[in-house]
Amino acid sequence: MLGRLNNLFGKILLIIFIIIASNSAFSEENKAEFLKNDWSFNGVFGTFDRASLQRGYQVYQEVCSGCHSVQHLSYRNLAENGGPEFSAEEAKAIAEQFEVIDGPNEDGEMFTRKGRLSDKFVSPFPNIKAAAAANGGAYPPDMSVLVKARKGGAAYIYSLLMGYEEAPAGYELDDGVYYNKYMPGHKIKMAEPISDGIVEYADGTETTKAQIAKDVTTFLVWAADPHLEARHKMGFKVFFYLIILLTLVYLSKQKIWSRFGSKVEKEEEEVFDKAERVVTEYEGEDPNTFK
C-alpha cells in the first residue's frame, strides 16, 4: 500500500515541476534579453582591452563624472597592472587636473590642493543628499561597483545606455523621467547620457554611441573588478596544479589500497578453507585426509 502511495506522490511532484517551469516561462517579469556584445573580459580567458579602458576612462571623465562618483577608485589605479595602464606620468597628470580638499592646516582651516596619485577620485558632490538634490531627487549612484550591483552586469549597463526609446503609446511619463527598455520598471531619471560623437577619441576610434557605450562599460567593469586578470591567471595555475596533484594523489591512493586488497584475499582463502573443513566434518569425514 505504501508502495502505491509513492508512485502517486512522484506523479504529484512531476506535476508541480511542470507548473513551476511553465510559470517561469510565461511570467510577466521584465524578460527583455540584454544586448549582446563580444566583451574581451568575458569567459575564463577574459582580459581587458587596454585601449578600450583608456577610452572608457575618458568617457567617464567627460560625460559621467559630472553626476556620478567612483569614490573607491584612486588615481594611482589608472597606472597599475591589469587596468588602463596609463604611464605613471600620465596618471599623475590626470590626478593634477583635479582639486582635492585637504587639511586642516596650521590655522585649522581646510584647503584645496592639486590631486596626487594617492588620492581617491574626486566626487562631483560632497554627499549623497547634495547629489540627489542636484538631480531632481534621484541620486546618481556611485559607479565603483555598479556593474556588480546590477543583475546582468556589463550586459545590463551596456543595454541600458543603448536602451533609450520612445515610450509606447499611452505611456505616462512625468517631467524629467525617460523611458528605457532595460531599466526595471522602464522609467529612469537620467536623460540619455551618450550619443554619436559626444566625445572625441585621441586614438581615432570611431565615436558611435555603441562604441562609446562599450568603452565606458568596459571601464566600469574594470572599476568594479580591477583584479580580474590576476584572478583569472591565478585560477588557471590553481587548476593546472590541482589536476596534477589530484592525479598523483589518486595513483598513490590506489597503490596504497591495493596492499589492503591482497591482505583481504588471503583472509578470504582462509575462510574458504575453514568452511571446507566444517563441511567435511559434518559429513563424518576426517578433514585431515578428506576421506
Binding site: F239, L242, L245, L246, V249, W257
Partner: peptide
C-alpha cells in the same frame, strides 16, 4: 588518502 583525494576534487569545484 581517500579523504585527501575527495578534498582535492571538492577544491576543484570550490576554486
Amino acid at each position: 588518502m581517500k579523504d585527501l583525494f575527495a578534498l582535492l576534487t571538492f577544491l576543484l569545484i570550490f576554486f
